[in-house]
Write a protein that binds this DNA or RNA. Structure first.
Lengths: 140, 140
DNA sequence: CCTTACGTTTACGTTAACGTCAACTACTGA
DNA sequence: TCAGTAGTTGACGTTAACGTAAACGTAAGG
């Protein structure tokens, strides 16, 4: 069985931390907050691939400016796709909210990028000015 | 002069706070942090349209998860498009960094939206299941 | 003149997301 | 056997971004 590494690799806290560029303190905090659930081998934490997937999602959430509470909420959403009717309907509502926020955020980014474009064009023009001036000088 | 309100309207701290859904404490903090520079009328703060523009940018930054320090840095970038050569080149480098971060953030959002799609589809399928079950029941 | 509304500064309180340190355990290689 | 490395659980420290409260000033209205 398991001829080519069927994805059952495990990781120590140090390995995982290093791989994702965080500290072990951070991983323990995420566990306290219910965002990660590594196995235990005695007292040591054992992280599996599913934990890596979660961690990836956590860090993506952070890059989007979410709090740990919001990230946990999103996990709860993802996990509860099989409930009763009221549950599911509430979930769909929450998903819609998230979608709206994300879309707005996307618009914000596009606007910010457009601003960047303008400022960058200005700066480049100013630079060209300066350099053409320099050329004249060195040829004078 | 000023026949149709040429954009010289001013605002008290309370008005501005209310309009943008923040507290006056927040506006004072932003001022302390160098993000806003309202005029003074005696001791009272007088906000002009340029302050509203700034505030709008500040709040956009916050929605993107930026710290106040990062927001101020972006203002500094925008304001310093006319410096000497070294300045301008440094600025272009910083702009490139920002652009990269924003683009990455945009990819993150797209991925998050795709995840939402999947979860939402699941939930809707589950709901349809439940409802079709209900229909059977009420027709039995 | 007195209250009410709105503003001011100063300063301490609070929450999130970690950093840092201490004291301890467990395994490993020389 | 002992040093070194990596892990563990507390617990206290720190920074950012405000909230909150105290003590005071000022203009308007009854």
């Amino acid at each position: 069985m398991d001829p080519i590494e069927s994805g059952t690799k495990t990781y120590s806290i140090g390995q995982l931390a290093e791989e994702f560029g965080v500290t072990s303190r951070t991983l323990r905090l995420y566990e306290e907050e219910g965002l990660l659930q590594p196995l235990r081998e005695g007292t040591r934490r054992i992280y599996r691939d599913r934990d890596r997937v979660r961690l990836r999602l956590i860090l993506r959430g952070k890059r989007l400016g979410w709090s740990l509470a919001e990230i946990r909420e999103s996990f709860d959403l993802y996990d509860s796709s099989h409930g009763e009717q009221a549950q599911l309907e509430l979930m769909l509502a929450k998903l819609a909210r998230r979608r709206a926020v994300l879309s707005a955020q996307k618009r914000d980014i596009d606007n910010a990028l457009a601003d960047l474009d303008r400022v960058e064009a200005n700066a480049e023009a100013a630079l060209r000015e300066l350099r053409s001036g320099q050329r004249k000088l060195s040829h004078g």
